[in-house]
Amino acid sequence: MNQPGETNAADPLFNQSLEKGLAVLRAFNAQRRTMTLGDVAEATAMSKSSAQRMVYTLEALGYVCKHPKTRRYQLTPKVMEVGYSYLSADILVDVANPFLSELANITGETVNLTEPYDREMVYVARFVASKFIPIHMPIGSRIPMYCTASGRAYLSALERGRAQEILAASERTVRTPHTRTGIDEIMQVLEAARERGFASNKEELFLGDMTVASPIFNSERTPVASVHVVAPTSRWTLEEAEKKLGPLVLECARSISNSVRALV
């Protein structure tokens, strides 16, 4: 992690204290559920005194609390207010929910809505089926664009040059034995997705996980999100998923896009 404020030190309007406070909140994750002050300082590349000031302020505001016995810090549910504020203000989520629900009912599988951030897709809506799914991805989870159906659906809707720039800037690590990492190969996959209107992914991010996705556009025909259906390999082959789920996902995405355009 870069030193907070390092890349914005020359900007007189940039508030480095706010950046440091947010860095502390972002440092907590599944691997660091609780931390000491020393842990916070190390995770955020701050001095221990800076970490102490940030943690003290966040604790006073109710975003962090200290366990009375272990004396380790952890996040409080108040942190979720920030994410909820985004979701409640996101018109796309409201517009998409009825269509996502309908798609989940028709397919009997879990349906998700993701939006792009940097070189990742962020889960913003989810309708979970009663059937088993191999991977749990709660709202707010982030997945890379290069090896996921939702990411590829979004990339396929961009100008080819822009999609290639994002792929080149991505850390295309091998997640499973099936992960495609070559730019040329992924660009070919994007071309196929562009022609069909939907993209697919078979066990490239997680084993047992397969998805089919289609991009959502705003009134300016700019891609703003992707809708995808989870088709576990325990129930589907790739050919079956593309044949049966592909057209349904595409129709759902088109319906959402048309509804978004109707609001403008």
Score class of each variant (00 low, 15 high):
A41L: 08
L37A: 01
E242H: 03
S214F: 00
A149F: 09
T211M: 14
S226M: 05
S170T: 04
M46F: 15
Y154F: 10
Q188V: 03
L167N: 00
G140S: 10
T44P: 10
K20L: 12
S156L: 02
I133T: 11
F99K: 11
C147N: 14
L103M: 15
K202M: 02
N201C: 12
V264Y: 11
F99E: 03
S50N: 12
G108R: 07
E203R: 09
A225K: 00
K69I: 05
G197M: 05
Y73I: 04
T107I: 12
G151P: 07
K48N: 07
W236H: 08
S130I: 14
Y84A: 14
R142L: 05
L100S: 10
P12L: 13
E120R: 15
N15C: 10
M210V: 11
L58H: 11
M35E: 02
A163K: 00
A199S: 15
C252N: 01
A163T: 00
G108Q: 06
M35A: 09
M1E: 06
G182Q: 08
R26L: 13
L248D: 00
S85P: 03
F206I: 14
P138S: 09
Q31M: 08
F198T: 01
S88A: 13
L75H: 08
C147W: 02
A241C: 08
A199H: 01
L18F: 13
L87W: 01
L37R: 04
T173N: 05
R196D: 09
L238S: 02
L113S: 03
F28V: 12
L37I: 10
K69Q: 06
S200N: 15
S17L: 14
N15P: 01
R26E: 11
T44E: 08
T7S: 08
C147P: 05
R126Y: 15
A43R: 07
D94F: 05
G208W: 14
R33K: 14
I186N: 00
E81Y: 08
G140Q: 09
T34M: 11
S259A: 13
I143T: 14
L207Q: 15
Y56F: 06
M1G: 06
F14G: 02
E242M: 11
P177L: 05
D90N: 14
D209Q: 15
S47V: 13
E242Y: 01
T110K: 04
E203D: 12
T179V: 05
V79F: 04
N105Y: 11
L167E: 00
D94M: 09
A168L: 01
A225F: 02
F217T: 04
K131H: 09
Y63H: 13
R160V: 03
Y73K: 02
Y56P: 03
P247L: 08
P138Y: 13
L167Q: 00
D209Y: 15
L205K: 15
